[in-house]
């Protein structure tokens, strides 16, 4: 049973239509906002930047990253870019996943409820014939849509830049085997989806933070602050007993899709972890939001 039963007494079909309408307007609101477009633009610039730098550095035939890169400095897959442009997609995702991508998600998720509250529009939203539970689900769905859009932005920008600057064709997996370019494209898509799914847990956490306050800025800062804290905790070796429970623990597992055969264990573990975070903080957000006095 949901809020809809009380706030809207129409037939179920109409209720679904109302939810869909709300979702559509939510998506339009998110993706038409100038801030969102700027965030996506910045994300799209990252692969271009990496691609140009690697291209300049390897222009004389030396391996990527110069002599110092032998130890594997820089983000994952950096060294392989000069082999095949498709690796720029993976490098760009590996470079943006630790902070950049979740940062943008934190901004969007943190703003989801608190932004409406601080703009004074939340009460009008609640007048719509959709219950609070559904409103929250719609907010989460549009945040997830942003996760996917942000990831695909990085991936597509990396794909185009890589194709322009570097050779295409067969590519070598990190296991040393060779796969066709079409197979590589398929894996790039899977990787983008895996990265987008990696952000689901943090998106739920951001949404929960967003229900705690009436200030959009405070919610964004809170979500991003949590992200930074978790990522710092992740680098402290003494805390390795805690690490498996942090939402970013399996983030790099998307790279396992470039093994041959694919190593699914960590990818599944990541999905389980993200599902747990989504359920935990989704239900916490619901508990908070459904019982809250909306005064703004």
């Amino acid at each position: 049973m949901s809020q809809g039963d009380i706030t809207f007494a129409g037939p179920p079909g109409a209720r679904a239509a109302a939810t869909l309408g709300l979702l559509r307007s939510e998506l339009g609101l998110t993706f038409r906002r100038l801030r969102t477009l700027v965030l996506l633009g910045v994300l799209a610039a990252v692969p271009v930047l990496i691609g140009v730098v690697v291209r300049i550095e390897t222009g004389d035939g030396s391996p990527a990253g110069g002599p110092g890169a032998a130890g594997g400095g820089g983000p994952a897959f950096m060294a392989q870019i000069s082999n095949n442009g498709l690796f720029l997609v993976f490098t760009a995702l590996a470079a943006t996943l630790p902070f950049f991508l979740p940062l943008t998600v934190g901004v969007v998720a943190g703003d989801a409820v608190a932004g409406e509250a601080s703009a004074g529009t939340l009460r009008y939203l609640l007048v719509a014939p959709v219950g609070r539970t559904r409103l929250l689900l719609v907010k989460y769905a549009s945040t997830l849509a942003f996760c996917l859009a942000a990831t695909l932005t990085v991936a597509v920008s990396g794909l185009v830049t890589g194709a322009l600057l570097f050779p295409a064709g067969e590519l070598t997996t990190i296991s040393g085997t060779t796969i066709e370019y079409s197979e590589g494209l398929w894996r790039a898509l899977l990787i983008a989806l895996a990265v987008a799914a990696s952000l689901a847990g943090f998106a739920a956490l951001g949404l929960f933070v967003s229900t705690l306050t009436n200030s959009g800025i405070a919610a964004m800062a809170g979500a991003v602050g949590l992200l930074v804290t978790v990522q710092i905790l992740n680098t402290i070796p003494q805390l390795d007993a805690v690490h498996p429970y942090l939402f970013s623990y399996h983030w790099l597992s998307f790279a396992d899709l470039m093994r041959e055969p694919v190593l699914w264990d960590n990818l599944y573990a990541n999905l389980r972890l993200q599902g747990f975070y989504a359920l935990l903080f989704g239900s916490a957000a619901w508990a908070r939001f459904a019982g809250r006095d909306i005064s703004a």
Partner: peptide
């Protein structure tokens, strides 16, 4: 194919 290795261009 597991045992085939062909170094990439770079």
């Amino acid at each position: 194919s597991t045992f085939e290795f062909k170094p990439g261009k770079g």
